[in-house]
Computed example of a mutant assay.
Amino acid sequence: MNTTLTPYPIGTPGTPWGDTERAEWLAAQTQQRSYEAEVLSVIEGLRTRFDVEEYGCLDYGAERYPLMAIRSRDWRDDLPVVLITGGVHGYETSGVHGALQFVDRYAADYAGRVNWLVVPCVSPWAYERIHRWNPNAIDPNRSFRDDSPAQESAALMELVAPLRERVLMHIDLHETTDTDETEFRPALASRDGEPFKPGEIPDGFYLVDDSENPQPEFQQAVINAVEQVTHIAPADDSGEIIGSPVIARGVIQYPLRQLGLCAGFTSAPYKTTTEVYPDSPRATSAQCNAAQVAAVCAAIDYVLG
């Protein structure tokens, strides 16, 4: 895809943002969809079958966002725990709706075999604005660390804290979009006073494994399942996906905990971050949701097997 090098409209090139630039950026953000209508209403409809809880609340000015989690009703201390998260980046739509679709259609299949905890929309303010950051221009997916600067990340870590050492598998549902290259990476460079370096958006699904504890067979099991639903992203001409070496078909690695990424904040031996490409001419929104569901089911099936 073509990428313009026109300076980002907010900030001075080479100078990190201050309060003035952050306020200017925030003023430009507008609500484009409803967390209550599209997410909370769906969660409400699941209460008859599963345990639903409000684990925190975000108060941003006059706006209040309850943070919701869904658990298996047959929770047993002798069963392994799996964690499914979506919407850490609010604009990554299939992460949110894929998580909800998993609960609605498939979660009951795992009754008595595993305890599952699903947090479908970690960042509801960003969900409504179709954005990557929270109102403070902070990326929650770089903020899963002690004394987190992001309320969204801190609240999720507090929810999971009692289970942190018991989680067997954590799958975090994301998307890579064309707007990563046209909006979010240029905004990041401007915010941090760094030069923007154009990249290439991969066409297809891929996974991010943990370079500090790689699980190649686990990752490949997820890739194999998702391939039945949508296509897997190929490596670029440099043998990379978004600047990282492809270490197996459709798989790259990051040091998850070191980078403060959501998938890295528990002690789970099996971790992965999904990346769906919703802008592909070869994929529909329904396929993207289905790819996330397939990834979740395959991940759980693998660790149970």
Rank of each mutant, 00 (worst) to 15 (best):
L58H: 03
R142G: 00
L26P: 05
E200V: 12
V42T: 13
T3Q: 12
T6P: 08
E44W: 03
D178K: 10
Y277V: 06
E165L: 09
S238R: 11
E165H: 13
L207Q: 10
P149Q: 00
L40I: 03
E38G: 05
A291R: 04
A290T: 13
C262K: 15
A286H: 15
A290L: 07
I242C: 13
L46S: 15
A286L: 15
W133D: 11
C262G: 08
R105C: 14
V122M: 14
N2V: 06
L163C: 01
D74N: 08
A295V: 06
D180E: 10
V82Q: 15
Q253V: 04
G239T: 04
Y302A: 15
V246S: 02
S280N: 00
Y110V: 08
L163W: 05
W25G: 09
I10T: 00
V226P: 08
S72K: 15
D74F: 09
E165G: 07
L207Y: 13
R71N: 04
L79C: 05
E92F: 11
A295I: 07
G239F: 10
I247L: 05
S285D: 09
M169K: 07
D279T: 11
D178T: 06
A286F: 13
S280P: 00
G14V: 04
E275S: 09
G45D: 13
P135A: 08
C57N: 14
M157W: 02
D59W: 14
V42N: 07
A107T: 06
G204Y: 03
Q215V: 08
T93C: 11
T4K: 12
I10F: 02
V296F: 00
R113V: 03
G18T: 08
A263Q: 09
D209V: 12
A27R: 11
C288F: 01
W133K: 08
I232A: 12
A161T: 14
P186C: 09
V160C: 04
D172R: 12
W116P: 00
V208S: 05
D203V: 05
D192G: 03
A299C: 06
K197T: 14
I171M: 07
V103S: 00
E21Q: 14
Y106V: 08
N115W: 04
V88C: 10
V96T: 09
P245V: 01
P195A: 05
I247A: 03
V303A: 12
G239H: 15
R185G: 06
A291F: 04
M169G: 07
Q29E: 12
V222S: 02
M68K: 06
